[in-house]
């Protein structure tokens, strides 16, 4: 498999069109072009963390400062960030717009991703986090805008799952 550069560009354009200028992220294979685009964009502030739970705190700080922002992470990073999501974002009603690479699901050839892939959606449901799947490059921009809008209006974490259909060629 190869990561789709064209669709990564569509996702990045969606992030830009949503008015986002601040991204907190941890690198992962499906996000490689997205992070390169962010890194090369002088209008974008990209903060890379050591572990994803940090990103929840940094995103909350950016929100307090009035800066529209998103998080970019793999689903295993989402699983690693849960206490921050629950005990900062949910407890204090801080919006979080998370774009999550959904590794380890249908078509996944790598065994190490599979258990995380299997449990991600059930965990999102257990946490009552609204989520949607992005599969179509024509629609992903609108989905990003809508996820960001909804996180702000609901003062809640919202997840947009970047699927294999979207991220791989």
């Amino acid at each position: 498999m190869t990561v789709s550069l064209d669709n990564s560009k569509a996702v990045y354009q969606g992030i830009k069109d949503a008015g986002i200028k601040f991204i907190t992220a941890l690198p992962e294979t499906w996000l490689v072009y997205l992070l390169q685009l962010a890194d090369e964009d002088p209008e974008m502030c990209l903060i890379e963390v050591a572990k994803e739970e940090e990103a929840v705190g940094i995103a909350a700080g950016a929100y307090f400062a009035g800066e529209p922002n998103i998080l970019l992470m793999q689903n295993h990073g989402f699983l690693a960030a849960i206490n921050g999501i629950v005990s900062l974002a949910m407890l204090y009603r801080v919006p979080l717009c998370m774009l999550i690479a959904h590794r380890g699901h249908m078509g996944e050839p790598y065994p190490w991703h599979t258990q995380g892939g299997i449990v991600t959606e059930p965990v999102l449901r257990a946490l009552n986090i609204p989520f949607d799947y992005a599969r179509d490059p024509q629609k992903v921009g609108k989905q990003i805008r809508e996820a960001h809008t909804y996180s702000l209006s609901s003062l809640s974490p919202v997840a947009l799952m970047l699927s294999r259909d979207l991220m791989e060629d």
């Binding site: 502030c45 705190g57 940094i58 900062l88 407890l91």
Partner: peptide
Amino acid sequence: FYLQHAMGLASSIGLGVALNL
């Protein structure tokens, strides 16, 4: 702002605020 849970993230919040202000 008092972070009464999520231990470890106060400095991350501070970073997010400081970078944007």
